[in-house]
Structure formats: structure tokens, C-alpha cells
Design a protein around this nucleic acid. Sequence first.
DNA 1: TCCAGGATAAACACGT
DNA 2: TACGTGTTTATCCTGG
Length: 489
Amino acid sequence: MEVFPGQWASFDHLPILPNNDNNCVIDQQQQSSQNTQQQDAEWSGFLRSIEPEHAVAGSEFELPDCKPNGLPDAMATPGFRPFPMHTSSDSSCGFPAFSPQHSATQSMSPWQVSTAPMMTYPPTSNPDGSWAQHQQTHQHSFHDSLAQGGLCIQVPTPPQTAALHHRSNLDQMFYEGPAQAHFNEIMHCDDEHFEHSAMQPNFVDDTFGTDGDDEADAADPCYAQLLYRCLMEAPEHTLTLKELYEWIAQHSQKAKDPKSRGWQNSVRHNLSMNAAFEKATGNGTKKGSLWRLTDHAMRDGVISTTRYRKDPKRKHERKGLLALKRQISGARGGQATRAATRRIKDMHQARSSPYTSAAEHHRRHRHRGGYDSGFISPMSVHSPRPNMLSSGPASPYFFPLEEEYPMQHPSNLHTPPQLQLRYDAPPPKSALEKFELQHIDFNNRGGLFGDTDDMPPGTPSLATDASFMSDDGMQSLLSPAMSREQTIF
DNA sequence: TCCAGGATAAACACGT
DNA sequence: TACGTGTTTATCCTGG
């Protein structure tokens, strides 16, 4: 496990400490010298991983802040947990200070433990939230801690880099569990750029925001990771969209140009498309604009937004008419975008080819198959030939009519008739209402799109991949071969 | 060269 | 009407 200065790191599997039933002295009669050497090597490696400068045989090393894994029940809430900050020089902090006095020839334990006040295990908390301290021998409590769950250690920040750090609420919180390691990965996703990375916790880089900082740009984490980190720090892992904007503007290079709104679009895109994030509703005035980290994400971290995953928990949101309308509108927007892009290409093509008009170019390509072989924009105003039908659907959203795409077609066989829709023109409002009333059975187990248990793999539907993820009935279809992307959650 | 991941642009509907 | 928000799709770029 790699750890970094200023970071809390959880060590669930620390090297074995010397036997200390009574004290911290190695019983040489019970342990072979080989074992001792192995322990020494393990501890040297461990120390080197958290403090290279002091991981030298014979040198003094003091573990700064450490605590047993496991928390008082009162603090055992998911996500961040309050944890008192201490300095390594504060002997009353309740954490053990280790002084490895290593000697290969020493018959006594290289690990001498002082007798400062120390927290018991399991730890208990005072009413004011502080950690209860008890006068106990270090070695007993510390060793028990190791036996029962390892330690969490704050790696010391070297003086030369300490100035680059400032303290935020992250320092007042402690996130524990498997996600901690992932969180650390996120925070330091690129080791090579760590020193200049905005992902470094509480990192303040004096080059931040300067022009031409290519290295910082290169280390700028992706939106999903930024959002993840932002929400991890947030109270209840929930923030408004505006707060997310502000945080990213502060902590990322992506919002270099405050006038540009493109990055905000990307933020919204990521929030919508990544299953690690969910809308938080029912929060009074902020309703509708709150975003929250899902439990899955808190536990397992965040993965690529391009996987277009959606948490099945959001299914209920998509069951509403509003969600359906949004989905349809989004699809139409996307398709219109595609048509617009093609028009632009057509224009360029027309300009470059004096003999071929854009319309003719489109007609030629329409019959050739391939990328834009058949799509007819749902928005007729965007389509050069709105009434021309194609040889095959380019989008799962749009299906040919039966006369052109008979039921014998393998895909059509599995497509419920009510889903064989096509927009040659934008459906009038009345048509949309009709569609909603007549074709959506919200009581069906399959959700919005009917009982999907009857729909075998590969069946096109009005739903996108993201919507598949929101559909219980489609969960069975989430094999790699059946979905464009696999859902990990 | 191909593919996956990430970023970005664009479009749309809805709400305020 | 303007703007913010949420959703979706397409495309470009980059690195493996």
C-alpha cells in the first residue's frame, strides 16, 4: 500500500509485532532469529512506505497520529467520521509513539514503547465527541488494536512540503473502510504528478491557475473523480449543483475560463450519466438541485462515467412521466445533434465538391449503409429528407415500420409492438400524452418499458443503456455481451 | 490501427 | 422570455 504525506492510511495487515503479552520484549526463546529478522524486514518496509527518511535501521522513528481501526458506536456512521486531530509531538494525544531502536544483533526487541496515555481498544468516546483516554500501557492496547483490526496512521508531512498544504474539513474527518484506499487512489491517481496534482488533498499549488501549466493540466483528474472527491468531503455527501460548480472551479483546471460554460455542461453530464451520483430529493428548498454520492460509490468508489452506468435505485425516478419526457427530449436532442453535425459535414462536403450538393451527398450516403446510413431525425426540421425511410435503424430509439422491417426480423421479433415507435417528425403534445397514457404500464415489473423479462438480449427499446440499468427486468441482461458496458455496481 | 476513456458540444424539455 | 437544470447523443482527442 502506498501512502502519502499528510494522508490518513489504514493498515489492516500490519507486520507482526513482537509478542507482548506482558511487555514489548521479544521472547527470543519463542521466536527464531529468522522470524525476528523477517519481522524487522517487514517493519522496515512498512516504515519505509510511510516515512522513507526515518526508515533507517537504528534511527528514531515516531509514528505520528495513529488509532485503532474500529470506532465507537456513536461515531459509527457511514462515510466520513469525526476524528480528533493531534500532532505527533503531543504526548497526550492518546496514541502511541513508537521508537524503533533497531539493531540486528540486539537480543531485546527493537520496538520500545513509551508509556504515555493511550486509547483503549475498543475505543470509547466522551460525550463531547473526543476520544476517551485511559492510562494503559501502550504495548497492550496497541497490540490489541493490531490484532483486532490494524491501525490508521497519519503519515507525517515533511516540512519542505508542509507549506503546500492547508487544512480543510477533510482533516477533521476520517473516512474509514475499503473506500479509504480507493479514496487515496483517487486523491493520488497519478503518482508521477502527485506533487503538482490538484488531487492532492488540501493541496495549494502556487502554480495553480497559471497559464501554460501543462503538467497541472495533465494531472487534472477527470470530472467523475472530482465530483467524487467533492461529495466525499461534503456534509452528508450532498451538494447543490452550484456548490459543485464552485468546488470544481476552485479545485480544478477545468474551469480556467470562468466565461466558458462548457465545463458546467460536462459536470451535469457526468452527474447524470455516472451511477456514482444521484439526485437527492425531499430536501426542502434545495429540492431538485441536490446531488449526492450513492452508498455504492462511498463503499466502492467511482468508475468511469463513459460506462454510462446508472444506479438501479434511480428506477423510481424514471418511472415518472417527467423522467420519461426528459428521456425522450434528451434522446431527441442527441439525435438532433447528430443530424446537425451531419448537416455541417454536408455543408463542408458541398463546399469542397462543386459537383455535389449537400442534399445529393446525403442521398448518396443514405443508401450506402454504415454510420449515417439510415437515420432520419426525429425533428423533421433538421432532416433534409424527413419522409425518406432508411434501410435500418441507426439508433435504438427509432424503429422502422413493419412494412419495411417485418416482424420476421430477429430484432423485431422481440420488440413489443407498442415499442415500435418512430419519429419522422416531432410528435405533437397530444401524441406524447397519448403515448404516455396508452403505452406505459407503470405497474409492470419491467418498469417503463414493459415486462422486460420477455425481451431477450439485444432487444432494442426506447431505453438507453442507462435506462437499462434502471430497470429491474433488465438487470438479468447485464452481461458483458448484452450491454454496451458492464455495470459493476 | 483499433479501442476505451474522457471531454466537449449540441439539442431538447421542463421549471422558475 | 431568459436562464438553470437534467438528459441524451455524437464527436473529437488521447493513450494503451
